[in-house]
Design a binder for these strands. Sequence first.
DNA 1: TCTTACAGTTAAGAAAAACTGAACTAGTCT
DNA 2: AGACTAGTTCAGTTTTTCTTAACTGTAAGA
Lengths: 290, 290
Amino acid sequence: MSRPLPDLSIRQLEYLVAVAGSPTWATAAAAVGVSPSALSQGLAELERRVGVPLFDRIGRRRVVRPGVETVLAHARQVVALTGDLAEWADRTRDGAIGRLRVGMIDAAVVGHFPEVLREFRSQHPHIDMHLAVAPSGSLLDGLTAGAIDMVVCVQPPSPVRGIDTVPLLVEDLAVYGPDERVDSPPTDWGPWVMFPEGSHTRSVIVDALRNLGSPIEIVAESHQPEVLRAVVGLGLGWTVLPVVQGRGSGPGLTRGRVIACRRLVVAKRHGAAVVPSVDLLERALRRDRA
Amino acid sequence: MSRPLPDLSIRQLEYLVAVAGSPTWATAAAAVGVSPSALSQGLAELERRVGVPLFDRIGRRRVVRPGVETVLAHARQVVALTGDLAEWADRTRDGAIGRLRVGMIDAAVVGHFPEVLREFRSQHPHIDMHLAVAPSGSLLDGLTAGAIDMVVCVQPPSPVRGIDTVPLLVEDLAVYGPDERVDSPPTDWGPWVMFPEGSHTRSVIVDALRNLGSPIEIVAESHQPEVLRAVVGLGLGWTVLPVVQGRGSGPGLTRGRVIACRRLVVAKRHGAAVVPSVDLLERALRRDRA
DNA sequence: TCTTACAGTTAAGAAAAACTGAACTAGTCT
DNA sequence: AGACTAGTTCAGTTTTTCTTAACTGTAAGA
């Protein structure tokens, strides 16, 4: 049943609406901002394409025939819908509305950017924003799968296919131990309580410790810094944490030297279109860093 | 508020709908019957005009972004509306539906074309038909005013500005008198009961009588032939009627010679578009005459 | 009746848009 | 690696649409 649709242009439908609402075609032409000739030709073309006579000549002017309200109604409706779409596009383009699926690691959410996120939320209430907090690896999985539009995570040890990363900030990783032994030489450190195997941060840490000559014995693992801190507090071992998550020292938790740093990046799908709302958030994050 | 609307073409919206419903753009291109290249360029243009990114690249294929359902919904709606319009146009074009405002003089309705009208009505039940029955003069007024699309009436004595007439049929006008005196010489005829001043038929009749040398004294007037016949039956005078309306002779009503003829014409506004439903009726009338 | 003004159309040419086929780029599959 | 394939870009052609200018037909004054 899909015979070729008449290829009416929005422009022509606009002409028709304008003509129906103007005393004379010349004024209608002025209203839509074209020459009377263009209007005349455009409407002739519209009439030809619809294949049904649309106008009557009355004296020296032409009027929309009674009996073609169907067409006129169609024109009005399409023009109105297009107007709505244009408005939607305008607002979407400057980020006033839109959909935003972000993934961030915990440190970014609670450590670095809580204020940025709060402010973004209040300044763009019409952006439909979802925030996924998870380890870098699963965030990047979500990104490739298309469930997330933008990720703030630890720079992957090796580039990931289909994902572009841009540096965002560098943060220090410090040793945390149960007491002042944290100031002893690295060879005396440990055992360790650490992020699980596969964690980007863990690979950074393990590399650094190896370089320092520290023995690497791991007695507990968790993705949650709070858990790691607590375990250290129980005296079961040492850990290495981003300083934003170490919160200085405390009872049973003493901060030692900075032994490495990890790079947080903004990751997006390779070739992903620039979406205003996403772009807006990324700018906000970078602005905060500066 | 009337910033220029984006000039989206129906065609481009069709592309979008096709792409959303096809596994691959190539198949979508085939579905709408254009080359993949055309589809690609068309959609790129659409995206440019809307001003908002519409697609994501996933692997080597492109998919409609989540978040632009707004645009997709708009496209679907407009395409559907256009389909409806196309269907309406098809049916209107071959006269299956439409609006039809006809004016006819009484003789045409009850004398010449009752069968044609009845059949037309039953064969085209979806044509919204209105029939106005009135004297020729007021029908033509209605025609110029645009209230009527087509008129069957007596040919006006002189051409009417803005109205085109095409002959339809010629009918005889006969003298009717109270008794066999109708066969006497014209100089003995009368007095007359006649259509009112201004009637086209009356001017035809008066001309004919004058040529025959009959005295023209008018004692009663009516637009209604039944009334004229009745008045003649009462013995108040003579009349001249189209033979279809004299219905032969009767008590107190004797038919005499044919003294003139009047031309019925089909009248339309000058420059009026050919509307299928109107055209259809006119053809039916002419077919009946042949 | 002649002139003038006006509403809309037609004509000619320029500019923009859309299409096709061919060459090309970049993921995917084997 | 090599063949394949989805989609894009390019070049050239056709189609559409616009502008200006000349033209037709109607209305309105003088």
